[in-house]
Design a protein around this nucleic acid. Structure first.
Lengths: 251, 251
DNA sequence: AAGTGGTCTAGACCACCTA
DNA sequence: AGGTGGTCTAGACCACTTA
């Protein structure tokens, strides 16, 4: 996390927005104004404001000053990819328990997701996760063969598998792809989460991979309804999220 | 949609990625290489590749060539904000019916979302939407007072309200904020979607506003489970989506 | 009409990866 | 060690908004 000039400026602007120096709906100083104040070129100022725009904090239109759209910064990638990091940042007490760990050949779908050959030995993990003592999420993950040894070493109450394998085996997620939808609780889900069968669950399936593009894991996380909300901010300039048809859309 | 040099280059690269000139996992030419080929400066090439990166197509790390992460472009902002535009792009037949339109004072929550005073007269619309004849989504929207007249003029089978008011009244959404979670179907939901009460629904609440930051509408869309999946791609560099606690997380 | 953001150039130095 | 992306500069012209 290198400290650069444009990150400094961005952080200063973030702080000014959060503390009300530039209230919601107000206009930011012009680029040339900021460039003068910070004694940098206009290009560097543009890098700073582009960062804030990508965080959804400000919006812009040609010819008009930039406008403050929100006061709070969006959470980081780590917090989206890691349940533990997210929950800790929220100030919740997180506990987890690995219920089963099974080495077995990958199914065709798993092999495709993990970009490996069908039949490769992968590691399947079933895990139950709690917030402040309440069971909130069931996690079913398959880890790629080259990751499995590191995961097998971990204790069954390990709070964050991703953090642990980053530290011990230097396996770090750089990219993620997420599929979000709603499903009815199956009997295993219902038993573990202590809810009725067919209750609504928010499902987040995601694939993590390294900076080099190597797949690490493919996971199916199911949250009790009401426990979690996903939030996304977009604009005509940038739309990070897309909507897709589910399997049972007719046609 | 102005044609600029960097957009041209981006479109050309997108095409090359989609058609396999640069397959999944392969490396893109270097910036200086592209700059020479296109007879532009390196800065312009960087704008082009930044665009592709924001679409999730390519990833980058300092010192190494850019890598192809996916082949297909993410859908546009319009398609995320507009059910009709999304469905049409998918090749589905879309129909909609406005069931009720009611002018009434805004509740406190609605007033806050629409950034107006509690008690301001807003327009509440209940609408049922079909894909290929199947009821798929229930939409409950409140429109800001200044938008209401344009919406009241529309026929009850209007396919896209956002498109129509853009055309007739020049009211265009530029930004959106989305909250995604799962809920159980209420009795009205169940009746309209022809499913059982308490069935799982994927809920997308969203707020649209203009380029100037003025709130247009606040809506609660509920999809039949299995009909739609939200997809997001993120990286350590950019995380557009965040996870939030729901109302009934303990603590 | 003046101000502002959007686009573009032609350089430069550095940190990092790959061979 | 050479190549590559990340950062930064100091200009320029244009399209658009605002007063």
């Amino acid at each position: 996390m290198g400290a650069t000039r444009y990150r400094e400026i961005a952080e200063s602007l973030r702080h000014a927005i959060r503390t009300g120096t530039y209230p919601l709906g107000s206009r930011l100083p012009s680029e040339s104004d900021l460039a003068t104040r910070w004694e940098v070129s206009r290009g560097t100022v543009r890098q700073a404001v582009a960062l804030l725009a990508s965080e959804g904090l400000i919006g812009s239109r040609q010819g008009a000053r930039r406008v403050v759209l929100r006061q709070e910064r969006r959470q980081s990638f780590q917090q989206l990819n890691s349940f533990a990091q997210w929950a800790q940042a929220m100030g919740c007490e997180v506990t987890s328990r690995i219920l089963t760990r099974t080495l077995r050949p990958a199914t065709d779908e798993e092999a495709e997701r993990l970009d490996t050959d069908p039949g490769t030995e992968i590691l399947y993990v079933l895990r139950l996760r709690h917030l402040d003592g309440e069971p909130v999420m069931v996690e079913r993950t398959v880890y790629a063969d080259w990751v499995a040894p590191a995961v097998l070493e971990l204790p069954e109450d390990c709070v964050s598998i991703m953090d642990s394998i980053a530290e011990r085996a230097d396996i770090v997620a750089h990219y993620g792809e997420h599929l979000i939808d709603a499903v009815a609780a199956g009997s295993e889900d219902a038993r573990l989460l202590q809810i009725r069968r067919a209750s609504p669950l928010l499902r987040q399936r995601h694939l993590s991979y390294t900076a080099a593009g190597r797949a690490i894991e493919w996971t199916d996380d199911r949250y009790r309804a009401g426990s979690v909300v996903f939030n996304v901010m977009n604009s005509a300039a940038a739309a990070p999220l897309e909507r897709r048809a589910g399997p049972d859309v007719t046609g």
